[in-house]
Design a protein around this nucleic acid. Structure first.
Lengths: 341, 341
DNA sequence: CTGAAAGCGCTTACAG
DNA sequence: CTGAAAGCGCTTACAG
């Protein structure tokens, strides 16, 4: 047996000490004489001994393993969050396993699942959105989950949820995007994406309208389309706007909820022969790796997702009940242009 | 205590039976009378009892948790593999945690790490490439890892490695791409990407040259550039080719090792005002979600990565020592055109 | 069909 | 500074 199979008993007998002593040097306790410590260390080395984290977990009630619930790893936005979370976890000696939760927005989560049997030390939950019609249901699931293990939220988290979380001020982001487009002379600015959210004071809706108000621009229902965050949905959404309006009322700029939707918008505009950015400016969000390679290169919002994931893990491990708001930057690329009259 | 805290002892005493009996119904053994079974089930329900997979693991020597080692989750190619692996694992009651292994190609892996203490039931390792200069080193690491837990490989895996694996016939893929381009009239076909690989009989190099040979086209060193699989590297690689040749010798088509590199090639061509696909056809590989949204939409190879991940997990769990070769399809999009003379 | 007992590989008081 | 013993929550023979 090359290794991984020796137990604390083997080491103890090899070193001529008790298992309690071995356990002490294992955990780096100071109350062990230098001499015995070395004996034990040598024995462990020779056997290529690795303590079983699972046996350790049985007594210590801590598994050093975390979970993360994501809507969809295939969206690089979440891959970035996961990567940040995993790296931070590894740094602190934790492992993280993936639990997709595609049903977050439709069904109550069943905490009776695999999740519970794993005795995780905690879990990061990425909340994509809190639908107005059943946000309460989602919240209830989260609370139930929290009764059995520490939870840190990422995403849409109204302050009254009282969960440790790291989120973004989506309202502020949207407002800045609107201001940016206004500064380029845009007056007809569409906003595509997202379901009708609950009344999170930081929801995008708020910032979008505030931005318009500040610029003394009217809010128009025709420029606001609800759709889920996929390229296909983005494409269809823009098509819907264009089909419903006479060309002279077409928006000169559209803000997409995420880069995926923005990609779809580009595809639709391209098909229709709408020049970008001359006739249509587009802003996305998430700043995916492909944003610089789209046509035109997509202006987007860098959300520092890896940092977000890392912070969430830190909160989880430290147990702090903080709600942090991440910072972000508008990354200007070629997809936005000054309005030509 | 709402749940997750009851133990098998609680259930046993509630139901008025021994823990052995509880354990039996837990594991769904048949030799339990219907009556006691129901009593036990009721007790479990009332306590919201969830067996501890970690206690179970101590005795049964099986943790039902798998690992996956990826070069880089941020490349959607690997996110697809992971997703497929995770879904299949969940279906079979397994959990999978992520272990990035950025150092696979440079340093020997230290199996003494976290990996070992976790007592995983097995691990899927994605091998990006087997560098000619230290492929042996990588192989040695893999073998060492395998001494302590079951391993299934994904990626570049020469048959003589004798590992269970699911890989692609990269040679066949490359050959088909070359044939496809030849059928469009291309004669100067560049191949960008990958380090110099070891002598895997299915390596891309082989197929590339075979394709040329079959079309009675010369192999030209100037059209073969080694570079790693990032957009930046792809961009630089194409720039290198173009800078080194007089325009009349420029390739009319380039095959990129993956879509990431292809994106970089597009960017470089665009900057130089080279028309795509009229003056330059490009083929990628991996068929990332963004491929249809690039300009022009990128022709690529669909590798069925989710299926690959799922199969790897199946091999891991079943313990079969098979080497499977996944199938794939060329997905034609707008990035390739007939050569104009 | 059911139970008593040992054991999995650690940690944690408790003595000394 | 070190050891004997109990215990973590299960599974697994072994009896009956």
């Amino acid at each position: 047996m090359p290794g991984g199979n020796a137990t604390i008993y083997d080491i103890a007998s090899d070193a001529g000490v008790s298992i309690a002593t071995v356990s002490r040097v294992l955990r780096g306790e100071s109350n062990v004489s230098q001499a015995t410590k070395e004996k034990v260390l040598r024995a462990m080395e020779q056997r290529n001994y690795r303590p079983s984290s699972i046996a350790r977990g049985l007594t210590s009630k801590t598994t050093h393993s975390l979970g993360i619930i994501l809507p969809k790893l295939l969206n690089p936005h979440y891959a970035m969050i996961f990567t940040g979370a995993q790296e931070e976890a590894a740094r602190q000696g934790y492992t993280v396993s993936l639990f997709p939760w595609s049903s977050l927005d439709t069904k109550a989560y069943d905490p009776a699942a695999m999740l519970l049997e794993r005795r995780l030390d905690g879990i990061v939950v990425c909340v994509e959105y809190l639908p107005a019609d059943h946000g309460e249901q989602v919240l209830a699931s989260l609370r139930e989950l929290r009764r059995v293990m520490p939870v840190v939220l990422i995403g849409c988290v109204p302050p009254w949820y009282d969960f440790p979380a790291v989120s973004n001020n989506n309202a502020a982001i949207m407002k800045e995007i609107v201001s940016y487009l206004v500064s380029l002379g845009h007056e007809r600015i569409a906003f595509i994406g997202g379901v009708k959210e609950d009344n999170d004071p930081m929801r995008r809706e708020i910032g979008y309208r505030e931005g318009l108000t500040e610029a003394h621009l009217p809010y128009t229902d025709s420029y606001r389309v609800y759709a889920k965050g996929t390229p296909e949905a983005g494409k269809a959404a823009l098509a819907g706007i264009l089909d419903s309006l006479r060309p002279e009322y077409w928006p000169t700029a559209v803000i997409a909820m995420n880069d995926l939707m923005a990609m779809g918008c580009q595809a639709e505009a391209r098909e229709r022969g709408i020049l970008m950015p001359e006739q249509l400016s587009i802003v996305g969000c998430d700043d995916l790796f492909c944003a610089p390679y789209l046509c035109p290169a997509l202006t987007s919002i860098n959300l520092h997702q890896q940092r977000t994931g890392a912070r969430a893990v830190q909160l989880l491990i430290s147990g702090e009940n903080k709600h942090e708001i991440g910072d972000w930057e508008l990354v200007e690329r070629a997809s936005c242009a000054r309005v030509t009259k």
